[in-house]
């Protein structure tokens, strides 16, 4: 198991340059590959070793940046924008739809580890507000029907 982590980290470090400047891209990539949108303590320790920074620095970065997480999240990270433009056109309704469809409150992950419902600040999709980001895709101009579709498509895999 340890070897797997080592290889994974070594690969990411090799891709982004083996120095502390590569910390952010390395962590983003490893988080992406975790399948759970998080950086585990084990991974963080290995990254610190590989990039020759203190474990403390890795954790500082993981906890500072909103895109990174030290705790596991769902396979699909659903982030509803609650910023200015989306608030003006009523992101609340969108949030309620997702809550109801998923049966989750903000910050919760479902039992299967499939969905995490979260809110986020501006994702630069104000022209299609209210907008939602699911992993790296952005969806806007949503209706309840489309929300249902987005979820069922992902449930189906």
């Amino acid at each position: 198991m340890e070897g797997v982590v080592q290889n994974l980290v070594a690969e990411a470090c090799a891709k982004h340059g083996n120095d502390s400047s590569a910390l952010l891209p390395v962590l983003l990539e490893l988080q992406e590959r975790s399948g759970k949108h998080y950086v585990s303590r084990e991974i963080a320790e290995e990254v610190a070793r590989a990039l020759e920074v203190t474990p403390g620095q890795v954790f500082e970065v993981v906890t500072y940046f909103a895109a990174l997480s030290d705790k596991p999240r769902g396979k699909y990270l659903i982030q509803i924008c609650e910023s200015t433009a989306c608030s003006v056109v009523g992101y609340n309704a969108l949030l309620d739809w997702f809550k109801e469809e998923l049966g989750l409150e903000v910050g919760q992950t479902d039992a299967d580890g499939l969905f995490t419902l979260a809110t986020t600040h501006c994702i630069g999709a104000c022209d299609v507000a209210p907008a939602v980001r699911i992993n790296n895709e952005v969806f806007g101009n949503l209706t309840r029907e489309k929300v249902r579709e987005l979820i069922s498509e992902r449930r189906a895999g």
């Binding site: 203190t54 474990p55 403390g56 620095q57 954790f59 906890t63 500072y64």
Partner: peptide, 9 residues
């Protein structure tokens, strides 16, 4: 020692 850090924001 690098043990204490500012975590979160």
């Amino acid at each position: 020692a690098g043990v204490l850090a500012f975590n979160g924001r």
